[in-house]
Nucleic acid binder design. Structure first.
Lengths: 196, 196
DNA sequence: AATCACTTTAGACAAACATCAAATTAAGGA
DNA sequence: TCCTTAATTTGATGTTTGTCTAAAGTGATT
């Protein structure tokens, strides 16, 4: 998943953005380049404080500086900002995800053929991936948005497998269903496993 | 710009993500729901530590918890994560920006009519907004992407205004041009003032 | 040289916080 | 009712860090 090198960078990035003054600084620099004195006046802090924060932003290459006579103008690198923002989430592009999901279609159907007979589950797969395929297959017997008392969940599952208790537990553990005060409901599909 | 309410939330968000353990936690919870004990074992920290971090993630509603018998399963709210990530950048929609730029069109043209006569600048406006309009008008005489020695910048500006020195300085100060070792170049237009 | 405007570094202080061990709470099951 | 397992709270500790003042550094102008 998240490799170690990226993790360190990501921590640093968020550390940098986790400060009100620095966030304001970025807000101002997004408008235009500023010099230190003006930034200090605008934000109501001392010049060394500005220098301190600019230094941090520079270390992440979020701002560049440019000297004009005595005064130094700082400019935001918007592109760089976007790079960081993509790092946490954007690693799984929709197109890519779609591609992989198609790749797995055969695997899913094969699993279901293998583990079901006459509409009933022969045995719960031990392999995690296959187990999820099976759970999702059983889940088709439930209506999304409707609430089920525990007894009714058992009833429905029983049509597929005797050990309804295990299946019910797996539904919860894997986020397919939620339970509140003994009442069960299927979670919306997009919350299941977008990474599968 | 960045309003105060959003700013606080954003600081909190980044504070939460600015920790290696929590980032790993999010990485794990992105895969599937986990219970506290397993998370502690997986990350090699104590249970209270996990509890501490989960508490922080919960405060930002980044994770939900779900009790199954004695054990509590924590699940990541991916949607919420996306919301936060959009907050920093996407706040200025292109459509909105376009709208505002149209609003200011008349103002711009009026300023140029007022301050130019026979293609020459009468005087540099003191008011910041108008000054920028004027600078941008003069800037049209430069090619984007081409490099100009200082002498040539002076030459071009001289066609509009005698005090080329001030104009040249204003170009730099306001981010319209950059200067490196005496060579000038016009910055790409999207870096000027998207907010104007 | 001397001065001036601006920036950066150094040092100090206080606040925030990650972590752990120990104590406490919560919920089942014997 | 007691025992077990898991989660949370509490308190302590050491680290990090934002901010300031004072001092030093940096370029340009007189």
């Amino acid at each position: 998943m998240l490799d170690q090198a990226l993790l360190g960078t990501l921590v640093d990035f968020h550390k940098i953005l986790a400060d009100e003054t620095r966030l304001k600084l970025i807000g101002l620099l997004a408008l235009r380049p500023w010099c230190g004195q003006d930034l200090a006046k605008e934000l109501g802090v001392s010049a060394p404080t500005i220098s301190h924060h600019i230094g941090k932003l520079k270390k992440l290459q979020l701002v560049n500086s440019l000297r004009e006579d005595n005064t130094i103008y700082y400019a935001l690198d918007v592109e760089r900002l976007h790079e960081f923002n993509k790092a946490l989430l954007g690693q799984d592009e929709p197109a890519e995800r779609l591609h992989r999901s198609k790749e797995r279609l055969d695997e899913r159907q094969k699993t279901i053929r293998d583990f079901f007979a006459d509409g009933r589950l022969k045995t719960l797969p031990a392999q995690r991936k296959k187990k999820l395929f099976v759970l999702e297959e059983i889940l088709k017997a439930f209506e999304e948005g409707r609430e089920y008392p525990e007894s009714e969940v058992n009833e429905v599952v029983l049509r597929f497998f005797d050990d309804f208790c295990t299946i019910r537990r797996e539904f919860i553990m894997n986020g397919y269903m939620c339970r509140d005060k003994g009442v069960y409901a299927v979670n919306p599909r997009e919350k299941w496993y977008p990474w599968q």
